[in-house]
């Protein structure tokens, strides 16, 4: 039995700027891994490379035994990328709910159009997942009628409806008012307890400390430290990690 995610020698350039430098990363099944680091450290780009929203410049992305080399072209590559995306769900900082669809339709959209399910079956799956995030009672609302926290929970349900093996979270609480962060983190915690494999880019140090099995610290496009949260938060080795943790401590909590 192997890893669920295996990133090998990943490089990413934006023009001449190298934002990811020889990244190697493994995520095991049922593991919750948090990636922390300052803005511009490359953590979001790394996450977006895993489901090819950013095309990596070189290296290999392997998700659930399916290896996709970077820089591929043509039909074959597109098919591989498609299969990787089927295995991964993604939650964005800005929610990105479809504003022209109701909450239920948002969650149905994947099963309906990607898996070609019939409507009643897709609706059933959508309702199940909305219930899972505690928002079944909002199923007929449109996204503009929801609070930020509710929007993000619907976005999580939408990703879950595709029954992914891996969930990617790209700063899921960064666009939220402080009082709404808790409800989203609670849903994520429950997901972790249910055994979902999760890769979470976050500034929520509390969540990383309490929920993560492993914490990865990034700076300047590199992984500078990687350990269980106990060690990262109590006795970080790298100076930059120390600075990051100190800043979070002095910021309250």
């Amino acid at each position: 039995m192997g890893n669920l995610v295996k990133v090998t020698d990943l490089d990413k350039y934006f023009g001449h700027l190298q934002v990811l430098k020889k990244i190697n990363l493994i995520v095991n099944p049922r593991e919750v891994v948090c990636i922390i680091g300052r803005s511009g450290s490359g953590k979001s780009t790394l996450l977006r490379c895993i489901n090819f929203l950013e095309e990596p410049s070189s290296g290999t992305i392997e998700v659930d035994q399916l290896a996709v080399p970077a820089g591929g072209k043509g039909k074959n590559h597109r098919q591989l990328v498609h299969e990787v995306r089927l295995k991964t769900g993604m939650v964005f900082q800005e929610f990105n709910l479809f504003p022209h669809l109701s909450v239920l339709e948002n969650v149905m959209e994947g099963p309906l159009t990607v898996k070609n399910m019939d409507k009643s079956q897709a609706a059933l799956i959508a309702e199940m997942n909305l219930d899972r995030v505690g928002l079944l009672f909002k199923k007929d609302e449109y996204p503009n009628r929801l609070s930020g926290g509710q929007k993000q929970r619907v976005a999580i349900a939408r990703a879950l409806a595709m029954e992914p093996k891996l969930m990617l979270f790209d700063e899921p609480t960064s666009a939220l008012d402080p009082e709404l962060i808790g409800e989203v983190l609670n849903v994520m915690k429950k997901l972790a307890q249910d055994g979902m494999t999760m890769l979470v880019v976050t500034h929520e140090m509390g969540f990383a400390r309490d929920v993560a099995d492993r914490v990865i610290v990034m700076a300047e496009g590199e992984i500078i430290e990687e350990d269980n949260p106990e060690i990262i938060f109590k006795s970080p080795k790298d100076e930059r990690t120390k600075a990051l943790i100190d800043r979070y401590r002095s910021g309250g909590q």
């Binding site: 995306r85 800005e94 990105n96 022209h100 959209e109 159009t113 990607v114």
Partner: peptide
């Protein structure tokens, strides 16, 4: 751009993303 990305991340093809997500909006 986030709308397109959300659709692609769900596994929708660029064509379907255009027809079902971008065009209606």
């Amino acid at each position: 751009k986030g709308q397109r990305e959300a659709a692609l991340a769900l596994g929708m093809t660029p064509g379907k993303t255009m027809r079902r997500i971008v065009l209606p909006q």
